[in-house]
Simulated scan of single mutants.
Amino acid sequence: MTATDEARQALARQRTMEITTTGRRSGRPRRIETWRYQADGRYWLTGSPGARDWYANVLAHPEFTLHLNGLDVQVRGRPVTDPGERARVFGEIVPGQDRAGSLESWLAGSPLVEILFD
């Protein structure tokens, strides 16, 4: 089994994880806890509507690290800005969230990044 296969299996099992991004201004590592989401057979990072430092960091430096049960994996984030793709992905993610707010609010104000294993 390759490291990528192992990481995909861990990601499928683990919803809460930590990521380390590179600070957009400082260039320093920034580690936070977040949730991953699954939609359209792929994995995503997002959050309720609002600005997120991790998102700004991924925009500036797309490569980041997933920390999955002792496994650290380098991945790349693909920010999703296309309205149609955002609607499809959030259409799967938002209905499953407790107190998520409206789909429209997520579309208007939530970051969306696909996790890519290059």
Rank of each mutant, 00 (worst) to 15 (best):
Gln74Arg: 15
Gly96Tyr: 05
Pro83Thr: 00
Asp98Val: 07
Arg88Thr: 04
Asp98Met: 01
Leu107Trp: 10
Arg88Ala: 12
Arg78Val: 07
Ser110Tyr: 05
Arg88Asp: 04
Arg78Ser: 05
Pro83Phe: 02
Arg88Met: 07
Glu85Ile: 05
Gly109Leu: 05
Val94Tyr: 14
Arg78His: 10
Leu107Val: 07
Ser102Asn: 01
Val75His: 13
Asp72Ser: 09
Glu104Ile: 03
Arg86Lys: 15
Gly84Leu: 06
Pro79His: 10
Arg78Gly: 02
Gln74Leu: 15
Val73Tyr: 13
Pro79Ile: 04
Arg86Ser: 02
Ala108Phe: 05
Phe90Thr: 00
Ser102Met: 00
Gly101Met: 01
Pro79Leu: 10
Gly96Ser: 11
Ala100Thr: 07
Ala108Ile: 13
Ser102Phe: 13
Phe90Arg: 10
Gly84Ala: 14
Ser110Gln: 07
Ile93Asn: 03
Arg99Phe: 09
Gly84Thr: 03
Leu103Met: 01
Glu92Ile: 04
Gly96Glu: 08
Arg78Gln: 14
Ser110Met: 10
Ala87Phe: 09
Gln97Trp: 11
Val89Asp: 06
Pro79Gln: 09
Arg99His: 13
Gly84Gln: 12
Gly101Pro: 06
Asp72Lys: 08
Pro83Ser: 04
Trp106Gly: 00
Gly109Arg: 01
Glu104Asp: 15
Ser102Gln: 10
Ser110Ile: 09
Asp72His: 11
Glu92Pro: 02
Phe90His: 08
Phe90Pro: 02
Glu92Trp: 08
Asp72Trp: 04
Ser105Thr: 11
Gln97Asn: 00
Asp72Val: 03
Arg78Pro: 05
Ser102Val: 12
Val73Pro: 00
Gln97Pro: 02
Val89His: 05
Val75Ala: 05
Gly109Gln: 11
Trp106Asn: 03
Gly109Val: 13
Pro79Lys: 00
Ser105Glu: 13
Glu85Tyr: 10
Val94Asn: 05
Glu85Ala: 11
Leu103Pro: 03
Arg99Thr: 01
Asp82Ile: 11
Val73Thr: 15
Arg99Ala: 11
Leu107Asn: 01
Pro83Glu: 00
Arg86Leu: 02
Ala100Ile: 08
Val80Gly: 03
Ala100His: 11
Gly91Trp: 12
Glu92Gly: 01
Trp106Phe: 15
Leu103Lys: 05
